[in-house]
Design a protein around this nucleic acid. Structure first.
Lengths: 235, 235
DNA sequence: TGGTAGATCAATGGTGTATCAATTTTAATT
DNA sequence: AATTAAAATTGATACACCATTGATCTACCA
């Protein structure tokens, strides 16, 4: 049905479908090489017709995110290229997925504090503190230390996606990262409303590398385990 | 036939076989120069046809992992990187790495308990409880539920690597898994010496898929966050 | 133009069978 | 003991068959 009265100014359905799938691919919920269900099956499951679905799939193929093989199936294409901005963000709502956003609490350049592990080449770093959301639900607080050797950032320069900011403002790119997941306690600067400092929470440490031998970013994330989990999907 | 009706969105079988063997080579279970069983024999052992198996072997040869000699046999080409011993076990000591071993606490087939999430097709499952070690340091306790639809296991049949047991004894293999990391409390069956039941610990839930649409294994792992962390290395 | 519906075509994956060719093993011969 | 011939083993190739699946086209509606 061509949406008669439902949604006057909605995007075409096949565009909506396309973007829905793009988000799943970017977020890593659909893995590289993974095969999608048959088109007929997928169409009924998405409550649409094959023709419409195929338009969406054709769009994905033109974007290089999908490989379509007649007689075989539709396969997710690794793309890797400029892939998911959120690809490295692995917290999801218990119900699955969620659209990630962030609110900057503070951002300034300062001496590295003593409790930080060794990383980068400079004694100074930009410290960014953020509240993270999935579907507008606060799920984590985060402290990011960006080594001063790659430049300095001020709060006005920050966008929701830090990695995008790094690329646009400081002209470097994160090529590798390592997460270490454990448990921790909410820091004393936790914003009111999220939880009391000292409350036990999930805890992620991340080192990120650009093209230098030493990591140039170190971050700590405390997440509310009643609302979100750290998800990893394996080939 | 393309996936007959066994699985909605499984990769072609020859790809699955190829990746299965790649994992075995990477994990060092197949050594350099080692000769594989004859194709005919291998085909029945992997419960597939020769044609399909040969596609998988051809794929391995194209990847340079296999040397195929007519009249002689198939030989592993190079081990190269003796990477991840147990690629799917992602707990590491704080100091990094560690040789994983396990001690079976119990193993029996029973009704699925009510607190389990939905998985598999059978109301019964094999429940395996293990203590896990890295370099002989106890770092986790683990409870694995293997859906009875793929078969049942007794403790005598178990080896250190469950995935190897699955392949040899029950004739299936894990193609995909999903980890969800959070925090939890040690279960009441925690062996003395590891920690008191109720102690807060790291907590991993894992779903594993074979070639069926529903996961056929569900496991819970409680790990000591003072001794080990869940590590994920990205790209 | 966007969405739906249906019919039909063509490519692919998986299986099964038969046959050929290269290699290795075994046995016989010298 | 060395050589040679036969036999068994093993991978290589080809073809037929079938179900699944994407591709294409036409018609219809708002």
């Amino acid at each position: 049905m061509a949406p008669p009265q439902q949604n006057a100014n909605a995007l075409p359905k096949y565009i909506q479908l396309s973007e829905l799938l793009i988000r799943d691919i970017d977020a890593g919920r659909l893995l590289d090489g993974e095969r999608l269900p048959p088109e007929r099956e997928m169409a009924v499951s998405l409550n649409t017709s094959i023709g419409t679905l195929r338009k969406a799939l054709a769009d994905l193929e033109s974007k290089g995110l999908l490989r379509r093989v007649q007689g075989s199936g539709n396969y997710i294409q690794k793309s890797a290229k400029a892939a998911g901005v959120y690809a490295m963000f692995r917290l999801e709502l218990m119900s699955g997925g969620g659209l990630p956003t962030a609110r900057i609490l503070s951002a300034r350049c300062q001496e590295k504090s003593a409790d930080l592990p060794q990383f980068g080449a400079s004694p100074r770093a930009t410290r960014i503190r953020r509240q993270r959301y999935l579907n507008d639900v606060a799920i984590a607080v985060e402290e990011i230390w960006l080594d001063a050797s790659v430049g300095e950032l001020s709060s006005e320069m920050l966008s929701d996606s830090l990695y995008q900011t790094y690329l646009k403002r400081l002209n470097f790119w994160i090529t590798r990262a390592e997460d270490r997941v454990s448990i921790g306690k909410l820091p004393d600067w936790t914003p009111p409303g999220f939880g009391s400092p000292g409350t036990t929470s999930g805890y992620i440490e991340r080192f990120s590398w650009s093209d230098q031998p030493h990591p140039i970013e170190f971050s700590r994330t405390w997440f509310d385990t009643t609302k979100a989990v750290y998800v990893q999907r394996l080939k």
